[in-house]
């Protein structure tokens, strides 16, 4: 690689990294000048609260995308955990939270095991485990939505509250995001993840335990999906086997729009936070200008394709299948 290609690669990476925050700023200022009511503390807090669940889901899948995989089971795991919470909260109270989250971690580990041990490509492995999980959720809820009654709401009500001026859901998302940021930056797992995503053969040659790293990434993704599910269930006071079905596409779109490459090795939690805010603002903006709620999927689908086309690192894939 000579100097010029090195420099162009560097400047391109810099531009790519700057696009999402710039876009976010433009969106906020643009909507703020068009609708003066937008830049108030109240609306911005609402925006943050609405982004929280999407961000938690997207943060989990970020780790999997960074190692070069994909997780298509997050919406099923989130729905299952909402069902588990709604079913268990009347019986075991606050302990329903760890139980639901544990279920998510277990299914994340299972996805990881299927992927690395049986060598099934991650999108098929997670499509399949997602189907298994969705079936279990339907069976556990008998195909219906389960309302959390007043006796259970004693234990879930705190999620709708505020702490130090910010909604509790925003705190949950912020703490999880910060923790994950630190993990990705300062632990061997975080380093290994980036290394595997950047070049798996080199990572193997360097002696990194690739299988274990990938399984941990899937476990985190499953765990965070489950947390997103319980937060959603507690906010809505209801669990349903199809609760999070509409969240898969926005979550993956948030990761990619934030600037994490689908090919892995480039990106991080901070970018996903920006991406989740962009998706959330676009969604609020569409509701604001009266775009039909069913048409939102069309926009997200198109945004996803464009963002992948821009961020993908084509040097890493010899054959685009």
């Amino acid at each position: 690689m000579d100097f010029r290609t090195l420099r162009s690669a560097f400047s391109l990476g810099w531009v790519n990294a700057a696009i999402p925050p710039a876009l976010l700023l433009i969106l906020i200022l643009g909507i703020g000048s068009a609708a003066p009511g937008f830049l108030t503390q109240e609306t911005l807090l609402l925006l943050l609260a609405n982004t929280a669940v999407l961000f938690i889901l997207a943060a989990g899948v970020t780790g999997v995308i960074l190692v070069g995989g994909i997780d298509l089971s997050i919406q099923a795991i989130a729905s299952l955990s909402s069902v588990i919470l709604a079913q268990l909260v009347p019986q075991i109270g606050i302990m329903a939270f760890p139980a639901a989250i544990l279920a998510g971690v277990v299914f994340g580990v299972l996805s990881g095991l299927v992927h690395v041990r049986l060598k099934v490509p991650s999108f098929v492995a997670t499509l399949a485990t997602g189907g298994v999980v969705a079936g279990i959720a339907l069976w556990a809820a008998d195909g219906r939505a389960i309302t959390i009654e007043a006796s259970g709401r004693v234990f879930t009500g705190w999620i709708n509250g505020s702490f130090a001026g910010l909604p509790v859901v925003v705190w949950i998302a912020a703490v999880l995001g910060a923790a994950l940021y630190l993990v990705m930056r300062y632990t061997p797992f975080g380093r290994y993840s980036l290394a595997i995503g950047a070049g798996e053969p080199a990572a193997i040659a360097a002696g990194i335990n690739v299988d274990r790293t990938k399984i941990i990434a899937f476990a985190i993704s499953g765990g965070l999906a489950a947390i997103a599910g319980v937060v959603l269930a507690a906010r809505l006071s209801s669990g349903s086997p199809t609760l999070a079905n509409q969240l898969l596409l926005p979550a993956i779109a948030a990761v990619i729009v934030g600037g994490t490459a689908i090919t892995g090795g480039l990106g991080g939690i901070g970018r996903t936070a920006v991406g989740a805010l962009i998706i959330s603002i676009v969604r609020m903006g569409m509701t604001f200008i009266g775009v039909n709620i069913f048409a939102e999927n069309v926009v997200f689908g198109a945004v996803l394709i464009l963002a992948v086309a821009i961020t993908i690192d084509r040097s890493k894939i010899a054959v685009i299948k």
Binding site: I70, N297, G301, L304, I305, V308, A309, I312, R314, I320
Partner: peptide
């Protein structure tokens, strides 16, 4: 030049929407 699973994931939701 993007992988088919990403292109078709986008088209899936565009068609459904």
């Amino acid at each position: 030049r993007i992988p088919s699973f990403m292109a078709t994931l986008g088209i899936w939701f565009i068609g459904l929407g």
